[in-house]
């Protein structure tokens, strides 16, 4: 009996020990990034971030510099004022918001109405259309980049918000329709029929009944589409171009890598600014976040 208990104890130590080691390894990159972003420029360039244990020395200068506009004044350690060229990440943050909010709301709206029609309305070739929508899940978005880029050039749409919203809508629709259809089609028929008998129009039914009932599915999809669009680089690079006025955070960070490749304090601060919103969502809505990422796991 004693030996089994000792075995369980050893087993427990091994399990907890292994998990703690894995967690430390997993966190080192993020922690190192966070610490470096808070160090003065010279320190970040010349010594490892782990040396802060011996000589802690922190500053928000890197964040000030990446967030500020064209020029910004920072106070160095010696107390003298220094003017450095800012990186204007505030603009990129705003651009990311301008891209992301409609690029989440529009596809969800379009997908929800379509899913409702597929689930509860009668129209010719309904099944065929639905099968086509599902089949489109296999199309990788790279296929669409060349043709759509050329259409946009002809329409003079490249570099506009509308261009990237529509692109994200197109690429996000098959999955959103598929998942929302699965959800909306399971709403009990009685609920809809009694509303219909009460004289509600299809539109009223959709806005007053279907949308509120689908909130769990919509919430998961919202988070998935939000993380997807916010973190997207390829679609933004293709359709927004490299114009700084419309560049989103990921593009900004990428150009920062090119221009300031060894200014680690700036790069790490920039990386943290891009991560800020997804991390807030992650920690405040963790359950929905996980469900959302699961739902989107087959994105094409």
């Amino acid at each position: 009996m004693g030996s089994t208990r000792r075995q369980t104890l050893i087993g427990n130590i091994l399990v907890y020990g292994a998990l703690i080691i894995i967690c430390i390894v997993w966190s080192v990159p993020t922690i190192g990034t966070l610490i470096t972003s808070l160090r003065p420029a010279d320190d970040a360039k010349t010594t490892g971030w782990w040396t802060v244990v011996n000589e802690p020395n922190f500053t928000f200068n890197a964040y000030r510099q990446v967030l500020a506009g064209k020029e910004t004044t920072i106070v160095t350690e010696e107390g003298e004022e220094q003017t450095v060229s800012g990186q204007g990440m505030t603009q990129a943050f705003l651009n990311s918001l301008t891209v992301t909010i409609p690029a989440v709301a529009i596809p969800l709206l379009v997908a929800a109405t379509a899913a409702y029609a597929f689930a509860w309305m009668e129209f010719p070739a309904r099944r065929m259309f639905f099968v086509i929508v599902i089949a489109l899940l296999v199309v990788p978005l790279q296929i669409a980049l060349v043709p759509i880029f050329r259409d946009y050039r002809a329409l003079n749409l490249n570099g506009t918000w509308l261009a990237i919203w529509l692109a994200h809508t197109g690429f996000g629709l098959p999955l959103s329709i598929y998942l929302l259809y699965n959800y909306i089609s399971t709403i009990p028929r009685d609920i809809l029929e009694s509303a219909f008998i009460d004289g509600a129009s299809q539109f009223t039914m959709f806005t007053r009944l279907i949308l509120p009932l689908s909130i769990p599915a919509l919430a998961s999809l919202t988070i998935f589409q939000f993380v997807w669009v916010w973190n997207d680089f390829l679609v933004a690079l293709t359709f927004l171009g490299t114009n700084e006025e419309v560049a989103v955070l990921t593009q900004y960070l990428q150009s920062l890598i090119g221009e300031r490749g060894s200014d680690w304090h700036l790069l790490t601060a920039g990386a943290f600014v891009t991560m800020l919103l997804p991390l807030v969502v992650f920690f405040s809505l963790q359950r929905f976040f996980v469900r959302g990422m699961m739902a989107g796991s087959v994105k094409g």
Binding site: M121, E122, F129, I148, G170, L173
Partner: peptide
């Protein structure tokens, strides 16, 4: 009753054909 379903499903079908169906053919 004939047109209403297409109010709901039409935009999705239009966007999908522009952004995914046609690109496959054109690519």
């Amino acid at each position: 009753s004939a047109l209403l379903p297409f109010v709901f499903v039409g935009p999705a079908l239009a966007i999908l054909s522009w952004y995914l169906v046609m690109p496959v053919v054109r690519s």
